[in-house]
Design a protein around this nucleic acid. Sequence first.
DNA 1: AACGCGGGGGT
DNA 2: ACCCCAGCGTT
Length: 360
Amino acid sequence: MPKKPLIQHSQDFRDALLDWFRDYQREMPWRNTDNPYYIWVSEVMLQQTQVKKVVDYYERFIERFPDVQHLAAAPLQDVLKVWEGLGYYARARNLHKAAQVIVNELGGEVPRDYATFRKLPGVGDYSAAAVQSIAFNEPYAAVDGNIKRVVARLFLMDAPVNDAKSAKQFQEQADELLDREAPGLFNQAMMELGATVCRPQSPTCLICPVNAFCEAFHTARQDEFPKRRKAKPVPEHHIAVGVIYRGDEVLITQRQLDGLLGGLWEFPGGRIADGETAEAACARNISEVVNLSVSDIKYLTRVRHAFTHFKIVVEVFVCDYQSGEVVLNGPRDAKWIQVEALSDYPLPRVTHKFKDKLIA
DNA sequence: AACGCGGGGGT
DNA sequence: ACCCCAGCGTT
């Protein structure tokens, strides 16, 4: 005999959730606005990035690019500079490109239409639902990591939250729960609940406004959900990079726009091969990547950095330009600049970790 | 459907 | 050391 579901009337759940949200939501600079551009920018920044980290970036971004027109007209390098340190730089490139599409093809207004908005670069199912519901009150259920976790616990769902095959199941559950009268509030309330109460570890079920509806809480199994597929171990790579001095200038190279750290600037370098010394790898990579010969290679420091799928250990050297003209083999651009001008360029975090030692 | 793509906070 | 985060685009 099937058990009686805890959520018999979805409206009871919605009322409890929204009442809680009205009283306990956190202040955020993109709340209490209906400006779709503000909401869109915030949603892109919030992809895979926690609220706390986003706040400062959001304020600077809106100040620097106050509307779609300013963003569309700005050079990509300026956008990347504001995004520097936030990660997943394709978000910035896509946001910039989408602003240009809006200005050039869509009349300069953020489209108030799910299908049109969803087609913009960098806008997926989640962001389209979030922006359309929050900015325009359109009835689309957003499904992010928070909401998957909440739903998984509410209904004891076995589908792993980090598996693409599960997406449809979570979407269907969210669609069913959605408050179609207040979709924007509902989506935000579900996410807020996931972030502050229905947390991954140590959820505070005793103070949860919807614990009466939660199968996991009812059976004291909240720590078993959501299910998660095991992640693969991350490899570690060893890298050697060289800061090449020519007079009082150093050479920086710009990465290709696609791929890892796309469009950001760095010092030339590359992998250390098996059996190769770090110093030899530094000279070899400089030769291969920018076609220069260097001399007087001196060890500066070692920095470590973790990406999502691998870790790197970087041996940093300082050396002198000896001979050759810069020929790019890999980078999309190269420049000789004063060390003091480094701050004008968007740099990866790993470069920031040793740039102060350069000036000292 | 699987994978690449940052960086940091929390535990 | 590991998990997770207001995901998206490519293959």
